[in-house]
Design a protein around this nucleic acid. Structure first.
Lengths: 240, 240
DNA sequence: CGTGAGCTTGACTTGTTTCAACCAACGTGG
DNA sequence: CCACGTTGGTTGAAACAAGTCAAGCTCACG
């Protein structure tokens, strides 16, 4: 009898940092335990809808199964900072596992499917299976490392660098998940998402992207991006 | 027989998020275990010296005991982003506990005294004592939450807001540690530290601080800051 | 006494924002 | 099938926040 966890494997392809995978592959010997311990409930949210608000989520832990979402903090004047884009396999935030309330909002960018677990169950499983614990640690180490990168990008890089790095960073994460392999990949972000993620205005994002297009670096259309000159595009992102 | 951990209590006053305290107070029943399991080695670093570089620290976990330090990422052109200021009781980074290599450098701002533990020992203690684990979780939840705040500060706030928030944030952390209680407190940062932490240039930091001083908001001298008009200073930091 | 690190100030430049107008694509209801 | 509002993107001109450059100051330290 397959567990709920194994059921979700088809939509979460295997790669090291994917939590669905981490759970599903934590060891054959433990999957029976999981089926007993961990009940998952599946949910969907249509594009453009807020999935969770600050202070929601007191005792459940959601994991992305399908679609793109953004977790963001909003200022009272309406401006927002996107802290990270959530892709299939991502935990909304590793801190939820340890009882922190959600301190940002999560917005669905595309239609999103996710599963929730009861925090207590998840935590118990974590302690019972060092193997799983190890993988979850890796996952939040990466979460922290990306958030540190965000800080230096916002604090010390120009608009061009920030945008190029955002796109290349997403490319890499999609590749890890098997959701991209060439120079062309799914890219459902609106320019205002890019703006909120890079600390710029939508207007300026449009100008920079036009410049990139004019210089034959990348092209964005139909919710997909194509990198036309990888070498120079990477140079913009990393020449510093 | 007092343990090495309890020995360090005098320089690490008791407050909820202080790890020294967390360890020392994890429960009377466990302190014997600690003395057996956890060997601490004490070190000192003079002001202005780099304490650790990226990729140092493979199997030790340092905890601040005394002094101020900064953890920062450097770009190849010499500019830096300070990710956080480390105060007594802070773990250099909670990710070190779980095997991540250090991905930033740590610079001593004042003379610094710290202790190191072997990671394996620390981790073992963590698993053995849920009480301790709970406190460490709280500590890294706060670490994450501060790093998210940093992102929105760098991405969406003006120079005045960033600087005011930095100073008020440090005030709060010092108060939690019993290292400040009034409107005047220790402040060993140079303006270039403030610049590196806020993503600004030292010149601009000087201009903003001069403006603050001119408006009777704060004063900085002799490695100490005095807040002269708390209400308006807080307004600058939070009016948005 | 000289040197270097840290701070201040002013003039000028640059990157980004703001404002505004406009266009294209799309879904909806009459 | 067309009129219409909405959402998303483009472009240019003007305003502004912060950066750069440069000079001069103080102060601690050898």
């Amino acid at each position: 009898v397959p567990t709920q966890l194994l059921n979700q494997r088809p939509s979460c392809p295997p790669y090291e940092l994917n939590l669905c995978h981490a759970i599903a592959s934590a060891g054959d010997d433990v999957s029976d335990d999981f089926s007993a311990m961990l009940e998952a409930t599946e949910h969907t949210v249509p594009a453009r809808r807020i999935a969770f608000r600050s202070r929601d989520l007191h005792d459940i832990v959601p994991i992305m199964c399908e679609g793109w979402a953004a977790s963001a903090i909003a200022l009272s004047d309406g401006s927002r900072q996107i802290l990270s884009f959530l892709l299939p396999g991502d935990l909304v935030s590793a801190t939820l596992l340890f009882g922190a309330p959600l301190h940002c909002m999560v917005e669905a960018i595309t239609d999103v499917r996710y599963r929730t677990f009861r925090r207590a169950d998840f935590k118990a499983a974590l302690f019972k299976h060092p193997n799983l614990f190890e993988k979850i640690s890796k996952s939040w180490i990466e979460e922290k490392s990306r958030s540190d990168q965000l800080a230096i990008d916002l604090g010390r890089r120009t608009a061009d660098e920030r945008i190029a790095r955002l796109i290349l960073g997403l490319k890499e994460r999609l590749e890890q998940r098997g959701m991209a392999n060439g120079l062309s990949f799914e890219f459902p972000l609106r320019q205002h998402h890019i703006a909120d993620a890079t600390g710029l205005t939508p207007v300026h994002v449009s100008k920079v992207l036009s410049e990139f297009r004019r210089n034959g670096l990348i092209e964005i259309s139909d919710r997909a991006v194509t990198i036309r000159d990888l070498e120079n595009f990477q140079r913009i992102a990393t020449l510093r």
